[in-house]
């Protein structure tokens, strides 16, 4: 899952970056409305963690931006303003969830997973396809025969593909999911991970659609 955290407090922003990355997600952090809009326009995110009190504007304007453009992204508002009136305003503006500060990092992660599930029209936490089960929380995978040991990035690619089994994901879409802005990406990194996944799951599990990308069999 690729996440955009919009938070201007440097310590909290760092905590979100480190803490949510530890959940196996790729996390980008920006501190201003302007930067947030630029990030959302230039690349796709699965979820946004949004602080409302930003130095150059109200976080709700980011939320409206996302909803006006029908972006397929879950938004969890993170705010110090958390009496019920504020929550109502936030939720009615299109937020998927609302978390008051201070908050439990694990709870925020769970809420993000739940928002993601709802967005994909799924209610069971685990992902299943072709006898393979993924648990997004523990980031463990297994088959009927037993455990399926996967690296962090292999898990992320498989999770992306299994979230929408019918959809074809391009190499660059997978790259975005795997790597943050600051990370160097090898030119054939995705192919390498796909190669290892096929070795573990069988050659037919992931299908290559020529000139488009990858999908599940």
């Amino acid at each position: 899952m690729r996440l955009l955290a919009i938070e201007d407090d440097p310590v909290l922003a760092d905590g979100l970056q480190v803490g949510l990355s530890a959940c196996g997600w790729t996390v980008e952090v920006v501190g201003r409305v302007e930067d947030a809009l630029a990030a959302l326009e230039s690349s796709a995110f699965d979820a946004v963690v949004l602080d409302l009190g930003l130095p150059d504007g109200d976080g709700l304007s980011v939320l409206r931006f996302v909803r006006e453009r029908d972006m397929d992204v879950g938004v969890v508002v993170l705010s110090a303003r958390d009496d019920s009136r504020d929550r109502i305003v936030g939720l009615d503006a299109g937020a998927d969830d609302y978390v008051g500060k201070p908050f439990d990092l694990d709870e925020l992660a769970a809420r993000l997973r739940a928002v993601r599930r709802r967005l994909l029209g799924r209610s069971t936490p685990a992902l299943r396809h072709g006898g393979v089960t993924l648990d997004p929380k523990s980031r463990l995978a297994w088959r009927e025969e037993g455990d399926l040991p996967l690296s962090r990035r292999e898990f992320a690619i498989l999770e992306a593909l299994m979230e929408r089994p019918a959809q074809v994901l391009s190499r660059s879409q997978l790259e975005e999911r795997l790597y943050g802005w600051q990370e160097e990406i090898g030119s054939n990194a995705v192919e390498v991970h796909i190669h290892y996944l096929r070795a573990k799951l069988g050659a037919g599990f992931i299908r290559t659609v020529r000139g488009v990308g990858y999908t599940l069999q």
């Binding site: 407090d9 310590v11 909290l12 760092d14 905590g15 979100l16 480190v18 803490g19 530890a22 602080d51 009190g53 993170l78 110090a80 303003r81 008051g100 500060k101 201070p102 908050f103 439990d104 990092l105 694990d106």
Partner: peptide
């Protein structure tokens, strides 16, 4: 109180990271 919540949230998150990593 609101102003204090953000640094408190930062503290809590960082404490959680320190405790769990």
């Amino acid at each position: 109180a609101h102003e204090l919540r953000t640094p408190l949230a930062g503290l809590r998150v960082q404490a959680q990271i320190a405790a769990s990593s």
